[in-house]
């Protein structure tokens, strides 16, 4: 079977005028701008097959969104080739549009003042969705994403989590075979994030859809995707199954303990102290050696713990670790 997405040496350069200070520089900038080139995407090659769920991750400005925009036909690349369902996205934008669904986490595709239902109707017309198939798909999405109670409410009054559920359902109304999600969980609280992840996984599994998502939240990758592509400075750093990456790089948690006593201790194999201040200590837990629950229980047993936070290491740190290992 041919791959759904096939990318060879894809590149995207952006040129920015360098801005000088003062009036003279501003005037000079108008007539003879001094450009600075940024290689946002710097020679990426990859193939994504049918029903694969792939996460593209990397820190801000790594080139993930730019890649997604090229694959969805928004941007033209500076070099290289790409096909999606055999189409060249930036040349056959309209034809491709019917086969893909796109969600930009920071932008709404819905009409803010109108009820959700009205947005679904309009998108139905934009994608020529009429007939029994379309109606059935819509009803199915409404049931699956639990949107029944939201349909009559104006989009602008929904919570961010509710809105995101509607955005994703809206992107699926025309039954695309490929779903692009750009930072779908950005700004959501933990519960809403979890709900969105559930919806994405269930939907993709049920419909046999290919999903490509970008995120800088490591939990998104683990819970939604089978394969992870790490991009940094426009290049692919790692491309491997999630399970493998998780064992290698995502096997750490950061646990912060607050205590009224001056020192906080936690002596267990697989636990290392990362930082400490009076009344506070940060421990790194190696989840291959000890479960987080055990470490926390041990800390609580010692007594005198006031507050606990459990976090994933920041993306930048994971990337640094990946770099160190390559």
């Amino acid at each position: 079977m041919p791959p759904v997405i096939s990318v060879q040496a894809l590149r995207k350069d952006f040129r920015y005028p360098r801005q000088g200070k003062g009036v003279a520089a501003a005037v000079r900038g108008v007539f003879a701008p001094d450009y600075q080139t940024v290689h946002a995407v710097d020679g990426i090659s990859l193939q994504i097959g049918e029903a694969e769920r792939v996460a593209i991750i990397g820190p801000n400005g790594a080139g993930k969104s730019t890649t997604l925009k090229m694959l969805s036909g928004v941007l033209e690349p500076s070099g290289g080739t790409a096909t999606v369902f055999g189409l060249t996205p930036w040349r056959q934008r309209s034809a491709l549009a019917y086969r893909i669904g796109v969600v930009f986490g920071q932008r709404s595709q819905l009409w803010a003042e109108l009820p959700v239902r009205a947005s679904f109707d309009l998108l139905g017309h934009i994608y020529d969705q009429r007939g029994p198939d379309a109606v059935a798909r819509r009803e199915d999405l409404i049931a699956r994403f639990d949107l029944g109670p939201l349909l009559g409410q104006p989009v602008g009054r929904l919570s961010l989590g509710q809105r995101m559920r509607c955005e994703i359902a809206a992107a699926l109304l025309h039954g695309p075979d490929l779903l692009f999600l750009d930072e779908p969980t950005i700004g959501l609280d933990i519960t809403a994030k979890a709900a969105i992840r559930d919806f994405i996984t269930q939907n993709a599994a049920g419909a046999g859809q290919t999903v490509v998502l970008t995120s800088h939240d490591t939990r998104d990758i683990e819970l939604v995707c089978d394969r992870v592509i790490v991009i940094n400075q426009g290049r692919i750093v790692v491309d491997q199954p999630t399970e493998q990456l998780r064992r290698q790089f995502l096997a750490h948690k950061l646990v912060t303990l607050h205590a009224p006593g001056r020192t906080v201790t936690l002596d267990l194999p697989g636990v290392t102290r990362r930082a400490s201040e009076p009344h506070l200590a940060v421990f790194e837990i190696d989840t291959r050696l000890v479960r987080v629950e055990h470490a926390v229980a041990a800390a609580l047993e010692g007594g005198g713990i006031e507050d606990i936070t459990i976090e994933d290491p920041p993306m930048e740190e994971v990337i640094r670790e990946i770099y160190a290992s390559v």
């Binding site: 003042e113 109108l114 009205a118 309009l122 017309h125 020529d128 969705q129 009429r130 007939g131 104006p154």
Partner: peptide, 25 residues
Amino acid sequence: MARLSLPALYARTARAAIAGSAADR
């Protein structure tokens, strides 16, 4: 699947915008 002509689609989206602007009476 019937494709809506551009003027007809325009009329629908413009009507939605008008309805939106009238939401706050």
